[in-house]
């Protein structure tokens, strides 16, 4: 019996529900052998992804909270079906543990979709004959910059609260371990999540992060695993259009108490206060 030569795979970007290669044509081999390649996204890919995210956002925000929750739960189901493939793509010592944790985190945020407005919004007792209430609304398009490790759990923890809150996002995956995020992209694309709500780029953080921060169609940033210099550059660029920037630091991503609550959704919400007179 002859040894079968394996089929190598190039993991592509996820933009607007499609899997394009980088427009730059750049690919990088993963690891030593000719096993796999990932695309090396460019600034143009980022722009395309932001455009897709912007186009997808109003319908995603307009979907009922119940439906968003169902779709996030469906994502959990799709990930469950890809447990082995996701675990094989991870280099962590407890790869299957990380996958399980990631799935559970998605389910946690699936459940928040139709609850956070009750926890974070309120009626305001103003002095006068008015109905006055404050409701959370999605911030819009969020740039998500992931830590290198944990490459799957970090990404899921940064993305789930953003999309639970009705925003769409453009994700820059782990630079050193991009394969699991690419496998996740394949789960996302088959999970009923509307095209463009989550877009995933692979590439180099130092090259792309400044473009995330300066892009005027990105409304907020959710990042983890940045060094001090990267944080400063990100915040400086974000000042241009006053992006809301949240950078997670010194975090144990496996700590549910630290990573799972409505205050993770809150930075990606805008509080809208509505007044209406009450009279006969």
């Amino acid at each position: 019996m002859t040894d079968r030569l394996s089929v190598t795979k190039t993991y592509k970007l996820l933009i607007g529900g499609k899997f394009p290669r980088s427009e730059s044509g750049r690919v990088t081999p993963v690891g030593d052998g000719p096993g796999a390649y990932v695309c090396h996204a460019s600034r143009k890919d980022l722009r395309d992804a932001v455009e897709a995210a912007r186009a997808a956002q109003p319908a995603w925000a307009g979907a009922t909270s119940f439906l968003r929750g169902q779709i996030l739960y469906r994502l959990g189901e799709m990930m469950e079906g890809k447990r082995d493939e996701l675990a094989a793509a991870l280099t962590a010592s407890d790869a299957s543990g990380e996958v399980a944790h990631s799935i559970d985190r998605v389910l946690h945020y699936a459940g928040w979709c139709d609850k956070y407005p009750q926890v974070l919004g309120c009626a305001n007792p103003v002095s006068g004959p008015y109905h006055n209430f404050t409701v959370p609304e999605p911030v819009g398009v969020v740039g998500v910059i992931c830590p290198d490790e944990p490459s799957l759990l970090g990404l899921v923890s940064l993305v789930a609260p953003v999309i639970a809150g009705g925003s769409s996002c453009v994700v820059l995956a782990s630079e050193t371990s991009p394969i699991a995020p690419c496998v996740l992209a394949e789960a996302l694309a088959t999970s009923d999540l509307p095209a463009g709500v989550v877009n995933i780029l692979t590439g180099f953080r130092d090259e792309l992060a400044p473009h995330f921060s300066s892009h005027s169609e990105i409304d907020a940033i959710h990042a983890g695993g940045l060094n001090e210099d990267q944080s400063r550059v990100l915040r400086e660029g974000a000042a241009e259009n006053l992006k809301r920037v949240t950078i997670r630091e010194d975090l144990d991503w496996t700590d549910d108490g630290a990573c799972e609550d409505p205050w993770w959704i809150e930075p990606f919400l805008e509080m809208k206060t509505i007044w209406h007179p009450s009279a006969t």
């Binding site: 103003v126 509080m271 809208k272 509505i274 007179p277």
Partner: peptide, 30 residues
């Protein structure tokens, strides 16, 4: 951030005030 329906420029300490987009971030009041 603040939408006045059939009224305008009403303020109250219990009512959050603040903007979307380049009108800033954070709320004051409430």
């Amino acid at each position: 951030g603040v939408v006045w329906l059939n009224t305008y420029n009403k303020f109250d300490p219990a009512s959050p005030f603040g903007g979307f987009k380049e009108s800033g971030f954070g709320r004051e009041g409430g």
